[in-house]
Computed example of a mutant assay.
Amino acid sequence: MTRKYKRKKTNSNKTRSILLTTLLVSVAFLMGLWFGKNNVSFQGLETYVNEMSSQIRSVFSNLNEDKKREKLADYHFFDMDQGSSVLLEAFDGTTILIDTGRYDDSDPRIINYLNAEIGIGGEIDLLIFTHNDADRIGNGDLVLDYFQVNEVWMNGMDHTSETYSEVLDALSESDAIYAEPKNGYTTEIGAFSIEVLHPLENEKQSSQNDESIITRITLGDTVLMHMGDANIAVEERILNEASTASLQSDIIVLGNHGSSTSTSKEWLQAIKPSVAIYQAGVGNHYGTPHREIVQLFDDHPAELLGTDNYGTIHIVVNENNQIDISTEDEG
């Protein structure tokens, strides 16, 4: 199934249509003039036609180049059952991977997804583990082993799981730069601008969920907010400290797989997303997305999409202020 969501109307297609129509009409008119003159040689006509054909090919070539430049990025929200993983690929080749799925994924499907998108052994400029629960860092060790990861972000909160230990071992054996970014940190990685909204500096939360790395990632005019598993209390803290305008985002990945413990009405009103995405397994025993979250979007213009219903969700970000959405399954 393919869906399209247009953020803003654009006249680029209309402009192209007018340009091509004008060109073709001009060619037809001038050709008529040439045929109407008795003193025109066939060789002269042939030269003229060749020149016009060359110009037309040049125009089409330029239009194709413009079309290529329209696409700024591919955002892949992978179907990871009750796990999470998002891949952002910019036009300049920069890649950001946020989380790596569940520890008990037997495929493991994250490797298959990445092989298909960035190539076997491809480069990942930034790998963000939003927090260290096994549904977020699962198969993170394999990603670090199989792919060229340049930088890794973690929240710095230790975990007792074997999965966490395996990720740390793989990280120590890699050449990746390691960082624990905190609230207020901003950076640019390739075409992406990244702002970290959480966790707080020198203030540990009581749970991995509430120590999630929350990022606001900008490319062109499009902003993506990724919540990890942060709960409503974290949202409230951010709302109290930040201006509403600084939080607005076009796309939001809902906290905690669409759980009612995240995404308050006030938070949604502040973010003002056009598209909201959650990653959850079909019939999962957590019951996500919870009914309260689904009902919240009944009264909100944002399109709510989940991997439980649609499989992997693919968003193309264009420079002409258009977001194109395609989904794997109708669900």
Rank of each mutant, 00 (worst) to 15 (best):
I232D: 03
I271V: 13
S243N: 13
E89D: 08
L304M: 14
Q55S: 10
L127S: 03
H131F: 05
L114S: 01
L45Q: 03
L304V: 13
I213C: 00
L30Q: 12
S106P: 11
Y286M: 15
G101V: 01
I325M: 06
L197R: 06
D158F: 11
Y103L: 07
Q205A: 12
L114E: 00
S41N: 06
V294F: 04
N50G: 09
F60K: 10
P289W: 03
I214Q: 06
F297E: 08
A176M: 09
I293S: 02
V152D: 01
M80T: 09
N132P: 04
F29M: 15
L197K: 06
S12Q: 14
D221K: 14
P181G: 02
G258K: 05
S326C: 08
L268Q: 07
G331H: 01
S26L: 14
D158G: 10
A116L: 12
L168S: 08
E117H: 10
E180P: 05
D105Q: 02
T261S: 12
N39E: 05
S212L: 00
I128N: 04
G255P: 05
Q208Y: 01
K204W: 04
I18R: 09
S26H: 07
D175A: 11
L296R: 10
K6M: 12
L247N: 06
H198S: 10
E173N: 13
I277P: 04
D99Q: 03
G140W: 00
K14A: 11
T100I: 07
P301V: 14
Q248L: 09
D298M: 12
Y310E: 03
N209I: 11
K182Y: 05
S326R: 09
G311V: 01
T327K: 02
E123S: 06
R216M: 10
L168V: 10
L87Q: 00
S61N: 10
E117W: 07
Y75F: 14
N39F: 04
Q205P: 08
N115L: 04
N62F: 13
E151D: 06
K67T: 14
D324Q: 11
A116P: 05
A233G: 04
M31P: 05
M157Q: 12
V49C: 11
R237N: 12
I120R: 11
Q279H: 09
F42I: 15
S41L: 07
E151G: 03
G283I: 08
G311L: 02
